[in-house]
Simulated assay, not measured.
Amino acid sequence: MTRVLVVDDQFLIRAGLAGLLRAAPGFEVAGEAGDGAEAVELAARLRPDVILMDIRMPGMSGIVATEKILAEAEEPAPRVLVLTTFDLDEYVYGALRAGASGFLLKDSGPERLLAAVTAVRGGDALFAPSVTRRLVEAFAQRTEETRGPAAGSGPDALPPPAAPADLELLTDREVEVLRLAAHGLSNAAIAERLFISGATVKTHLNRTMSKLSLASRAQAVVMAYETGLVTPGRGC
Rank of each mutant, 00 (worst) to 15 (best):
T231D: 10
L167I: 02
A125Q: 14
D49Y: 08
S101H: 11
L135F: 01
M209N: 12
G102T: 04
R121I: 12
V92A: 07
R173A: 10
F27Q: 01
R56H: 15
T84M: 05
M223W: 02
V230C: 07
R45C: 07
D107P: 08
A220I: 03
L21G: 04
P161A: 08
A165I: 01
I13A: 14
M53N: 05
D124K: 14
A33S: 06
G102P: 00
A30F: 05
A188Y: 06
N206L: 11
L83C: 10
T143P: 01
D8Q: 01
F195R: 15
V175I: 14
S216R: 01
A98D: 06
P110S: 03
A157G: 10
D124N: 09
E145M: 06
R133H: 14
S153M: 14
L20V: 08
T231Y: 12
E144R: 15
D166Y: 07
P76R: 00
I55E: 08
E226I: 04
A39S: 05
E90D: 13
M57W: 13
T2R: 12
Q141K: 11
Q219H: 02
S210F: 12
E226T: 14
I13L: 14
L113V: 08
V80Q: 04
L135D: 00
N187L: 07
G148H: 01
A73S: 11
L52Q: 00
G148I: 05
E168W: 14
R112C: 12
L170C: 03
E75W: 12
E75H: 09
I55R: 07
Q10P: 00
E28W: 13
G235D: 14
I190M: 01
L12W: 06
A165C: 09
A95M: 04
V4T: 04
E41A: 15
I190D: 02
A188M: 08
G26I: 02
A24S: 06
G154S: 10
T2N: 13
T227G: 03
P58E: 13
